[in-house]
Design a protein around this nucleic acid. Sequence first.
DNA 1: CCCTAACCTTTCAATTTTGTAATGTTTTCG
DNA 2: CGAAAACATTACAAAATTGAAAGGTTAGGG
Lengths: 223, 223
Amino acid sequence: MKLLLLEDDPKVADFITKGLREAGFVVEHTTQGEVALSLAQSEEYDAAVLDIMVPGLSGLSVVQTLREQKNPIPVLILSAKHTLKDRVSGIELGADDYLTKPFSFTELLVRVQALIRRNSLNAEPTTLQYADLEMNLLSREVFRSKHLLQLQPREFSLLEYFLRYPGRVLSKTFILEHVWDYDFDPQTNVVDVLVSRLRSKVDRDFDTKLIHTLRGVGYVLKL
Amino acid sequence: MKLLLLEDDPKVADFITKGLREAGFVVEHTTQGEVALSLAQSEEYDAAVLDIMVPGLSGLSVVQTLREQKNPIPVLILSAKHTLKDRVSGIELGADDYLTKPFSFTELLVRVQALIRRNSLNAEPTTLQYADLEMNLLSREVFRSKHLLQLQPREFSLLEYFLRYPGRVLSKTFILEHVWDYDFDPQTNVVDVLVSRLRSKVDRDFDTKLIHTLRGVGYVLKL
DNA sequence: CCCTAACCTTTCAATTTTGTAATGTTTTCG
DNA sequence: CGAAAACATTACAAAATTGAAAGGTTAGGG
């Protein structure tokens, strides 16, 4: 994990850099906003920690510019001021979190890790797969063993949930909530029917079945 | 653009590194396959140039491992041998191109640039936008000025083409070929009707119209 | 300024997709 | 073993989507 640090105070910079390196991060440090901006644009970094108060281009301007360029890099703003106004403007300009000096190193570390975790969770994949099943969310094509399956929208949606939670049991309630957005039981067997239809396309012509029933519990995608 | 180079011969490595740096690339060089592999896994690099014959883990093994991990980094294999067998096995293991020594530097440069260009062209975006229109290809949601539009599949497909080719005129023939996959004229006004339906959702409630007609030519998405 | 071709919109019909219900099958438990 | 519950499948009906046709509107050339 590679971090970008913008901080002009040598003591603070040294303190943060050493700590983060010990925690296993690769840290690139600069004292100038302009440099931080161009480094961040290289898209090599997993997150940036920016001090607001530096000579030249401020941390706030850096975030603002990055966001205007649709750069999604997670940004943590550091500031000596802890007025509500500053905090708000940092977040409004697109920063993901805010920390006021003085702070403990642990506090910083926890926040940085949270930012990175949140970011990688949010990074949606464009293809999902399990065993010989492959789903391309962009082209909306589904293959089993290189063979194209022709799924209807509802079937596609259900299979998407199976692939997002492989090996996990999806209850009928879960399926109703997610595939239909119902928060009530429609008193019919829609789910059973949909599962049946999906199976006829995904499993019928293949020896190894992927969709399994857990009586009284739900359905699972597994080998 | 950042490149990874695996090459144990110091002279060759120096020659390649200098040349590529002059051409504007950032080059990271290692002589060990194991190191190359772990660097490539960091996903910081835009392409990798790997020599087959290095002590330890060979370039071929590196590609193979990367591909098993579904890492799509473009790889150019370098080798002293130029037997067909080697060339084939390199490509089979997932390399994107192959170059045999000796080679001119220009030749290498051209191939590396081609690899990167091909790769970035293939990188499908997950959102398309033009002016205040935003389409998310993954969630299949479309917004105009933050307001959700409810599009039917055919309408979505047409708008997708408009957004992929903003400012470009799409002829009725183009639309029939791409949205319907017809290579003939169905002798009806399906296209007119679809454009009309799309307009009623995209433009009707807004002052600035985005879909414009070019009489006798086709339709354009523009401000 | 009028006529024609191109385009726009509305309505209706065909098709596709989805939901409901009925019936058959399997499993579990007394 | 038999009954009940859970599940599977099929057939049919309803709803949604799409395609065709018809009639109205606009733009441009003669």
